[in-house]
């Protein structure tokens, strides 16, 4: 309908019809939004992560007690109104430690994703896009790093560096960057032969611009998915390091250290370790759900093309 009017109104004789209806455009945007809101996994995952983030940020206002204050009169107290999950063997509020622990876990997750995503994306994209000996060298290096289990690598790095939040984040990032780089490279390899890359060469773009403007943006969806899921493994790794006493140093509250402390009294006070374990599980499940949801919803073009082929 709109097309017919346009053909007559326009100064150009040949005005093709098309998706020109503002109504249609609005509907398309709504449909895109619906893809996210109607994905139950995505919504649940996003809600969990959002709540955890709120908890971490608002910890000073939410937490009923200080996570560090020891109350020797209340060692290993039963849950009460003042201490909803009881206290540990130093008389510290378990719930408050968990709430503050979320700060550490989410920070680790956030920074590891940011660092490994940035470095992995650049390394992988360079390898895939440039090819030749650069690619072979990078791939060899990545293969060597991947040969070590990620956690062991992080363990070794923290042991060498001494433990602090920064060194945990650095270590876990170094362990996970090769994973992102591998995914990035394989995605870039599928993008490189696509016609719009050749078209970019034809209009005279430099390789750097093609890489930054055309290759990397198109490669991001699968990489973001990998990064989201690796945030979950990063949180697990941090908890593991803390549990072994190699993470952020005590008395800072982390989920891993709460488990470790609770372990000594696990037969009498299982709630301490259990609640920390549950926190980790919830965060990991949330991130995995979010990653799966993103995988299903991030690539509208692909969905559209397969849909179009079907007709």
């Amino acid at each position: 309908m709109a097309s017919g009017e346009m053909a007559r109104d326009s100064a150009i004789p040949r005005q093709p019809a098309g998706p020109d209806d503002p109504e249609a455009a609005r509907r398309r945007r709504q449909a895109a939004l619906r893809r996210y809101t109607r994905h139950p996994g995505f919504m649940v995952g996003a809600t969990i992560i959002l709540l955890l983030a709120l908890l971490a940020i608002l910890a000073p206002w939410i937490a009923p007690n200080s996570p560090l204050k020891t109350e020797m009169s209340l060692v290993l107290a039963e849950p009460s109104w003042a201490y909803p999950l009881g206290t540990d063997q130093f008389g510290r509020c378990v719930l408050s430690r968990l709430i503050y622990g979320a700060q550490i876990s989410l920070q680790v997750g956030f920074w590891v994703v940011l660092i490994s995503l940035t470095c992995g994306t650049l390394i992988g994209a360079l390898a895939g896009f440039l090819g030749g000996w650069i690619e072979r060298a990078i791939v060899a290096l990545i293969d060597i790093m991947l040969a070590f289990p990620g956690f062991l690598l992080a363990l070794a790095l923290v042991a060498a560096q001494g433990s602090s939040l920064t060194s945990v984040i650095t270590a876990v990032s170094i362990a996970y960057t090769p994973r992102v780089a591998t995914v990035m490279r394989s995605v870039v390899l599928t993008i490189r032969p696509r016609p719009f890359i050749e078209a970019s060469h034809a209009i005279g773009l430099t390789k750097l611009r093609i890489l930054l403007r055309h290759v990397i943006p198109n490669a991001m969806p699968p990489v973001i998915v990998v990064a989201t899921v690796s945030a979950a493994t990063a949180i697990l790794a941090e908890a593991g390091l803390s549990f072994l006493g190699l993470g952020v140093q005590p008395p800072t509250a982390t989920w891993g250290s709460v488990i470790a402390n609770g372990q000594a009294v696990i037969t009498t006070r299982p709630l301490i370790s259990l609640s920390a374990g549950l926190s980790i599980a919830v965060a990991v499940i949330g991130l995995n759900l979010l990653g799966d949801g993103l995988r299903d919803t991030l690539d509208p073009q692909m969905r559209r093309q397969t849909g179009a082929k079907m007709l």
């Binding site: 696509r194 016609p195 719009f196 050749e198 078209a199 970019s200 034809a202 209009i203 403007r213 055309h214 943006p217 198109n218 073009q301 093309q305």
Partner: peptide
């Protein structure tokens, strides 16, 4: 300049 065969693939989505 060049115009390519594949109108779907030759534009950055």
């Amino acid at each position: 300049q060049m115009v390519f065969q594949d109108p779907y693939g030759s534009l950055d989505p």
